[in-house]
């Protein structure tokens, strides 16, 4: 384990609530300055992992280092180095946006002038200048989430935990949040991101770990994960069984579904291979009702790895 260069390193983290095992031996290694995404369905243990790593709760077993400090013996040093934006907004609803940021500046003991300047910059960066003087209780979900993250940044943390930062946000707000995350990483910050959106992990993360019922079932880059499952295919649907039979005889190595009248033909999805396929069908005058191209995405990976497509399926948007 390369803890010297790791922003987060963990071995064998376990946590149960009563009889319910939530984390069942988690190993993590997140290099400094990277984005690490923990991907999983609801109840997989993502939030519990964040709570353990951010010192909110103690693991039953295992050890972890965050920003080079032992979680158990130096929680104060860990807290001084991290920032957490949780799933539920950690803002003071009775204060204004600006007051929330000043509160954070005061708690980080920034000199008054520095705190005010920093708050002003963050309000601009997060597009909250107009709303700065209004109570947070009047904010929309997206504004609240932006303020939440801005508050986390007041203390210039080196490691940031984002627990489902875009859950419940509209597409535009989500893209805005992604842009902010990219800028943070460009500034050298390490991001530990949990999400149930495969697209989000694909967009942002250098490395992705798939969490399923408290265990990591796979880890790697998005490309590595995609390579772990069968490749892409072309799906052909026919009007009648005769067409299906003819095409199956012609194409050989395919998987067929007699009920749906479809064939799955392995393909890399390139234009050339599609043209070849269509020409061959055309030569035999086989009528195809519908043709669709499927490239493997993280959805396929997730379903292949966790094998529980019906049980709280991961959402892909």
């Amino acid at each position: 384990m390369h803890t010297q260069h790791s922003a987060i390193a963990a071995t064998g983290l376990r946590k149960s609530f009563g009889d319910h095992v939530v984390l069942d031996g988690i190993d993590l290694d997140v290099p400094r300055g990277s984005v690490f995404s923990l991907l999983g369905a609801n109840g997989a243990g993502k939030t519990t992992t964040v709570k353990v790593l951010s010192t909110l709760i103690r693991a039953d077993a295992g050890s972890a280092w965050v920003a080079g400090h032992d979680l158990t013996t130096e929680p104060d040093a860990v807290r001084a180095a991290i920032g957490v934006t949780g799933q539920f907004s950690a803002v003071d609803n009775l204060l204004t946006g600006r007051e929330n940021l000043h509160l954070m500046a005061d708690l980080h003991h920034l000199p008054r002038g520095d705190g005010k300047r920093r708050a002003g910059r963050l309000l601009e960066q997060f597009d909250l200048v107009e709303a700065a003087g209004k109570p947070v209780s009047t904010y929309s979900g997206g504004m609240r989430r932006r303020l939440d993250l801005a508050m986390t940044l007041v203390g210039s943390p080196r490691v940031i935990f984002l627990d489902e930062p875009t859950t419940g946000l509209d597409p535009r707000s989500r893209r805005g949040m992604w842009q902010i995350v990219r800028e943070l990483v460009a500034g050298g910050v390490t991001i530990f991101l949990t999400t149930q959106y495969l697209e989000e992990a694909d967009e942002l993360a250098d490395r992705i770990a798939v969490l399923d019922r408290g265990r990591l079932v796979a880890e790697g880059t998005a490309d590595q994960l995609k390579r772990r499952i069968p490749g892409g295919h072309v799906r052909l649907r026919f009007a009648d069984p005769l067409g299906l039979d003819a095409a199956a005889r012609l194409l050989g190595e395919v998987s067929r579904d007699d009920d749906a009248l479809t064939l799955r033909v392995p393909s890399d999805g390139s234009l050339r291979s599609l043209k070849t396929l269509i020409d061959r069908l055309d030569d035999r005058a086989i009528e195809v009702d519908e043709l669709s191209v499927h490239t493997p995405d993280l959805d396929d990976v997730f379903l292949a790895l966790t094998g529980n497509p019906h049980d709280e399926k991961v959402t892909s948007r």
Partner: peptide
């Protein structure tokens, strides 16, 4: 692991200062 990363920040606590901050929050 050997202690990694920059030297630990000032880890002293400031209970009076923090209490004053929290008092301001509650008065607001």
């Amino acid at each position: 692991p050997a202690p990694a990363g920059p030297a630990p920040a000032d880890l002293r606590f400031h209970p009076l200062r923090d209490s004053a901050t929290m008092l301001r929050r509650n008065l607001k």
